[in-house]
Design a binder for these strands. Structure first.
Lengths: 297, 297
DNA sequence: AACATGTGTTGCAAATACGCACCACTCATT
DNA sequence: AATGAGTGGTGCGTATTTGCAACACATGTT
């Protein structure tokens, strides 16, 4: 039986005049187009195109089919419109979940831009520490900070999150005092993690730990107020005008930021548009996330 | 972008009312239909069918699409007809090659039926011992008697060919004479094979070999005329009214009959129709080929 | 003449779709 | 109840399809 999709390829090549141009239009690799046209012709036992050095030109049979196929495509776009929602515009709801810190500092801005561009789409944003279950479809899209995402989800790594050590900017004059920095303390997270780990923490072996604040946002505020040295994500610290890194100003990569969705939604136009949009948005702010926007004093 | 082929599945399920029935119509596994419908709905973000215990029932959206899709299918048949029509005129020819013996005894009858049902197809039948090259399109379809076909071709095993030992029916009365059978001789093929090989030959260790006839058809005639005991394919011997098997009437499997074509033609409708037709035809005569139609006297 | 840019094809590894064999469930018949 | 014939769903091994990258060839430019 005829493969309907083959006609789509036939039309694209017909109009574009070459395999490569058609491939771009169809957003697939040009080798795929080449092979599918060849396979289509084989299945018919007929040639639809003459191969010239400039590209593909329809044969007589190709011409005959072209008109019918073009008409079909036209009608098909009606179906598509009817399915995709009555407008060309995307509409409906997208449920998104994201960690509160990145949400506040960065992602919400991106979401706002998205809503501006697609006003019909309604975002249901859940800023939750708890990992919502994408498998159960509690959310359509998730931003997560992990090293490796679960393998049953699909998505991309958006950025490598860096962190660095910060102090309150208002204490900057004290830094010149000999021995002052050495007497400072970390701001602790929990009992177990009173001593920060990672290579960056080893730069300051003599720091002690004081306080316990198990929340990133509050850690930032505490640091801002001079309660100690905070290890904060660069996208928080570098952007905060009241914070400065301490010497030697280096940052350390810790986790990765991923955007994830369920494989079933891989072909869903609305979801994928959102994913692409946010991916691009975050890439635009990659420097901040990866701690490259800090300028040494 | 919409996958046009998904509509084909949508239509089939729509009409058949269940995944399994649609699968049969589409000649694919029902799991495939199930998964494609689910994936289609996921890509739309909307349901096209309600799942009931009796099967799939269209939703309101499904109804809307159904009309458009049904119309598209109708128009699509124009394309198909046009291609087929063109196919008839330009290359409405299938080149088939087959061994002469099976051709005469069985396959040609099937070909005749095929031509009757598809009068627009012209068969170019080459009954040749020499193996034509399917890769060079010297033939589109080949019937071959082998144990294992070359792996660069695709096809199916049609039957296991059996052979048995025959004598002229007119000599049947002599069989009652004590010791007559033991004095008979094989009809030889070539020098090297003057003594037949295989387990069936061992049943008659005392037979000598006489004559040399290197052609199956002529061997049959020779046997018919009482020149000796012939080892013949069952589809020749069992069907010949002038031949009978000798005791203990057993048959032995020797080669397999295959129908083969080039992978490039895997999707060629004409070829595949022919292959399917002939496969079915030969299956209908399987008993004869496999020597099960002989009734012991 | 060398080069860049256009064309389509092909080998190979990875992604994807498929068929098979099973399962769970519903419903009608025994 | 027990059975059988429907329904759809799922895990797994395999077959097909795809993308990538490297080609080979033609054409126009430097």
């Amino acid at each position: 039986m005829l493969n309907w999709d083959d006609l789509k390829f036939f039309l694209a090549v017909s109009r574009a005049g070459s395999v490569r141009a058609a491939a771009e239009e169809l957003k697939v690799n040009h080798a795929t187009v080449s092979r599918r046209i060849n396979s289509f012709e084989n299945s018919l036992g007929q040639r639809l195109f003459e191969r010239t050095s400039q590209g593909y030109v329809r044969t007589r049979l190709g011409d005959e089919i072209f008109n019918e196929a073009a008409y079909l495509e036209e009608r098909l776009s009606n179906v598509e419109r009817r399915i995709m929602g009555n407008d060309e515009q995307l509409s409906g709801e997208i449920r998104v979940t994201m960690p509160d810190l990145v949400a506040e500092e960065l992602l919400l801005e991106g979401c706002a831009l998205f809503c501006q561009q697609y006003p019909q789409v309604e975002l249901d944003i859940v800023d939750s520490i708890k990992l919502l279950n994408l498998a159960n479809r509690e959310a359509d899209v998730a931003f997560r900070i992990v090293k490796e995402p679960p393998e049953y989800l699909i998505g991309r790594k958006l950025a490598v999150l860096h962190r660095a050590c910060y102090m309150a900017k208002k204490n900057l004059p004290l830094l010149k005092k000999e021995g002052w920095l050495e007497q400072q303390n970390w701001i602790g997270w929990t009992d177990k993690q009173r001593r920060p780990i990672g290579k960056i923490a080893k730069e300051y072996p003599r720091f002690s730990s004081k306080h316990k604040i198990a929340n990133s946002k509050l850690q930032a505020i505490a640091t801002r107020n001079g309660m100690g040295i905070g290890i904060l994500p660069c996208f928080v610290g570098d952007r905060d005008p009241e914070l400065v890194r301490i010497p030697p100003y280096t940052s350390e990569e810790k986790y990765d930021l991923w955007i994830l969705s369920h494989p079933d939604l891989r072909k869903n136009a609305k979801i994928q548009t959102f994913v692409r949009f946010m991916t691009e948005y975050v890439h635009g702010n990659k420097g901040l996330l990866e701690g490259q926007e800090f300028i040494e004093p």
